[in-house]
Design a protein around this nucleic acid. Structure first.
Lengths: 349, 349
DNA sequence: CTGTTAGCGCGTTCAA
DNA sequence: TTGAACGCGCTAACAG
């Protein structure tokens, strides 16, 4: 089924059908328009996008480049981008680089071969590659990871400020020993540096109030053998030198483990000990609201990136300047007094 | 840059370039071939996929239709499909229906307009829609949700057998009261019916051994106000009438909550009380291996679906019969004796 | 082994 | 207000 078929059915030429499909209604009589509308609806006709793309060089396709599509938080990012693209009549081709620069290069070029109108990259990688791509008229925007020097638009989370603000709040609550906790395997990521920096700078600035900072790495082996991890958490708790301790959990997956360990160790959260930091998806619910969590606004981030990109493609957004947007984390402050015992039901059954 | 440019550079006609690009090397001299290879590499040329698709009606595009791209387990499914498609030179367009049949209809038609070679649907919905699509030469395969009557290929998890096997094992361990636990909001889903059926049939078959089955629904409100959920779990635990109780947790998200509640309530897992069931991603790790979990083989499922679909498209898979594959869950049996106290470190700090 | 030719389905002049 | 004709970049039949 092609526009020719519709044209034959209506009794006009395919040019008129094409005009109708592209919304150029002032080039035809109202009657013709209605007859075309009926015919298209009756046949449930959709024009071949490849053919259209060939001529107009707009494919209504967006490329989404993800470092690892199986990571736990990606669904929020992916789904918001998909939904936003769908809302403005576009489809999303998703590719996953597995943090391999060569693969990214190859995949991005292939996306270009598919005539995507724009690319959303969450890899934070290789600006030159995207510059080359953008030469070909393909719009580019960063999300999640945003190289400071990139000439492209980008939307990211302000981990630095969010971590700093949360830490400031915790110090205000009287905690003096801050433990920055991170999985060893994550240590290399640039994403985590700003989180640590935010914590470190606030601690340094308030060292006059007796604030000390420790850095601790947890190996994957420790987590795999959960008893070792619990032991580790116990030590952190005990080594406080009588300083009120707050553990900053730098990453969501780790947060889940910390919550479980603390529960199993029956550690009560008091003004002597607490933890806070990046959200496991369930953390807020399962920690009974007694823990301060930083929730990354991934859905807003994705939607905003998609919207800005769409604006660039449509020519709605015309700023010559690159746009770098930083979103703060949504902070879930403890709703339970910190002197409330977490296990108020008491005793085992 | 088009094949014409390459042709000019090499000094041959574009047909020859096209042949080279499609791997028809036996239609050209070795020397021509090498010169073309160099020219293409030098220019880093990629042929326009839209143009190719227009002529050959193969786009190397696969449509992936997901009920809800933001659901927690989708990344495993999506990523395996994406990777598998990438591996065989295809790209994946992902769309999300939000369980809306009209939207699904619209999206699937739009995918067809983009000339996708095949569609992987995880919605389990509206077979007629896909039949219509398949009329147009687009291959279709189900994954995750597989309507029994569907004429299309499909790969899914055998929830019935998996639940039954796990329950049988639990009964063998001496538990006599089985509590089937499910979130109320999930009650409507067909996906959960086989899980319940598996549990029910085994319990019925072994009622002679004194096995009884209870069904319990948890409301989202209860989970939101976590104290209420804990209270609920406590009641379940206490109402055992002295029967050794095992709670079957029908769904991963719920499993996370159950683990937390059990931890916070300091309920030890013994031969009087345990829980088992569908895996929260972290359940196996954080429950110290003392809980039997059913892990859905989502990665294998996605990869297999993608591979079968690719086979159909390439003509490698030629079976006239539809192929319905059911994968068993990977069962993680408890590695800790069930009489071992979960909190062996004892006491709070 | 290579080139010529004719479309694929659509958008876009230009002429009517 | 409409239509004829051309070309987008590529593939494939056919001819050489």
């Amino acid at each position: 089924m092609t526009i020719q078929d519709i044209a034959d059915a209506v009794g006009v030429s395919k040019t008129t059908i094409s005009r109708y499909l592209n919304g150029k209604y002032n080039y035809m009589s109202k009657e013709t328009r209605q007859r075309i509308e009926r015919a298209i609806k009756a046949a449930d006709f959709r024009p071949n996008k490849s053919a259209g793309s060939l001529k107009s060089s707009r494919s209504d396709l967006i490329g989404l480049v993800i470092p690892d599509a199986s990571a736990m938080l990606t669904p929020l990012l992916i789904s918001s981008i998909i939904d936003e693209c769908t809302a403005c009549g576009r489809k999303t081709i998703v590719v996953s680089t597995h943090d391999d620069a060569d693969k990214e290069r190859r995949l991005v070029r292939e996306l270009a071969a598919h005539q995507v109108d724009g690319i959303i990259t969450a890899t934070g990688g290789s600006v030159p590659l995207y510059q080359e791509i953008s030469q070909g008229g393909i719009r580019v925007i960063h999300t999640d990871r945003l190289p400071a020097s990139s000439p492209f638009d980008g939307v990211a989370v302000d981990h630095y400020s969010s971590s700093a603000a949360a830490t400031g709040y915790i110090i205000d609550q009287g905690y003096r020993r801050i433990v920055f906790l991170l999985r060893q395997s994550k240590g290399g990521y640039g994403t985590f540096a700003p989180r640590e920096e935010g914590v470190r700078e606030v601690c340094a600035a308030r060292s006059g109030e007796g604030v000390v900072l420790e850095r601790m790495l947890v190996s994957d082996g420790e987590i795999g053998d959960f008893r070792r991890f619990r032991q580790r958490m116990r030590q952190i708790c005990l080594q406080g030198d009588d300083l009120p301790t707050a553990v900053f959990v730098a990453e969501g997956l780790l947060m889940g483990h910390v919550i479980c360990a603390v529960n199993q160790l029956r550690i009560d959260l008091t003004d002597r000990f607490t933890f806070y930091g990046y959200d496991d998806t369930r953390a807020a619910a399962t920690s009974v609201g007694s823990v301060l969590t930083l929730n990354q606004p991934l859905k807003q981030m994705g939607a905003m990136a998609a919207r800005i990109l769409a604006g660039r493609i449509d020519g709605t957004v015309v700023s010559q300047e690159r746009m770098h947007c930083f979103l703060d984390c949504a902070v879930a402050y403890p709703t339970v007094s910190r002197t409330t015992r977490l296990f108020s039901e008491g005793g085992s059954l």
